[in-house]
Design a protein around this nucleic acid. Structure first.
Lengths: 190, 190
DNA sequence: TTTGAAAATGAATCATCATTCATTTTAGGA
DNA sequence: TCCTAAAATGAATGATGATTCATTTTCAAA
């Protein structure tokens, strides 16, 4: 809402996407936003809080979407996965920096015990695993540990998106989604 | 070769795997190895060089293996992928810390322009992409950008391995490999 | 033993930023 | 125009942790 806060988040996203959280300097972010270092501290108590705000925002959207998908009992597992891919690609397209940031910080932030992020990320993993486990009662192969499938899915999707993240705007969204669905559902073989 | 250097690398791997490179303190590594901080600097000029040594070692093994696989003209694409998965799983099993470290630092170090790592990682990506591109002339689906498939493969495999990395020793290697092959080649569907 | 080169030590130094806060600027109401 | 509360500033501070190096220890050859 606050215009200044929005500017800070925008600049921080650029810097985090470029160099990762740990190498990002508050002074860079301030420069980028055209404001003084101290100003950032009027809006965020610590550096980590900026990343937290960014991640909370996008993970919340994903969680929201996941909940909608999982509760739609009309959908088969395959359709749920497709729907989910669609949502994630849209998110990434709308915000190409996010895919890069999440990839950068994936391990760090999924291991992290940030009191706001942790439950959100756990929730997302649980929801995703549920979709996969439920699908295994029907059309998904059931000879693999659902946790492992979930991890494979997450890793594959994020790296796939990172590959496109720099030119996601210019690329045909439909093609990108279809390709990802094929890889996830049917694999590399013809 | 050098015993002391080996000890440092071993301790560093433990610490890096636990907390990631950025949060790892030289003093932790020294404590873990039961030596003084200064001693580490007799063997490595900077902290980064320790990680470099670790990553060079394991990526070199992967590159080596990739070259062997790619040059084996008897193998079809599918078999090359299977062989490659086998090598990677073996590596990870033999050294569970490595899988965790690489996952931690994946984005950071693949973007990084460390003069020794960069060419090695580029080479690995090129080799892998070649296997996939060549396979597309035959049994692999050819309707997806090979670069995107390569990224998907890398992301999927690493996250899959990370899922198991804590108990890879106790788990049936054969099962893990077969499952990963299925996910990569045939996808989630039955 | 003695000796000195090599190895190891860890307290002191140095560099890097995140964070603070005394001071300045801005902007809107009187 | 003047005044003041809110907003912004950025130099100074503080914390962290990598790196150095003067000193000590080890150990093998003489």
């Amino acid at each position: 809402m606050d215009k200044r806060e929005e500017e800070i988040i925008k600049s921080a996203m650029e810097v985090f996407a470029e160099v990762g959280f740990h190498k990002a300097k508050i002074s860079h972010i301030a420069d980028r936003a055209g404001i003084a270092v101290g100003t950032i501290y009027l809006y965020f108590k610590k550096k980590e809080d900026i990343l937290e705000a960014i991640l909370m925002r996008s993970w919340s959207i994903v969680e929201e979407a996941l909940k909608l998908v999982i509760n739609d009992t009309d959908l088969k597992g395959t359709e749920k996965i497709k729907e989910l891919i669609s949502i994630i690609v849209n998110q990434a397209k709308q915000n190409r920096l996010m895919a890069q940031i999440i990839l950068h910080e994936f391990k760090y932030w999924s291991d992290n015990d940030n009191p706001r992020l942790k439950p959100l990320i756990t929730s997302i993993q649980t929801l995703l695993r549920r979709i996969i486990s439920e699908g295994m009662e029907n059309e998904f192969r059931s000879d693999i540990d659902p946790g492992a499938v979930t991890s494979f899915f997450i890793g594959g999707v994020w790296h796939y998106l990172a590959y496109y993240s720099n030119n996601l705007e210019t690329i045909n969204e439909y093609t990108v989604k279809r390709a990802l669905e094929k890889l996830v559902l049917q694999g590399m073989l013809k």
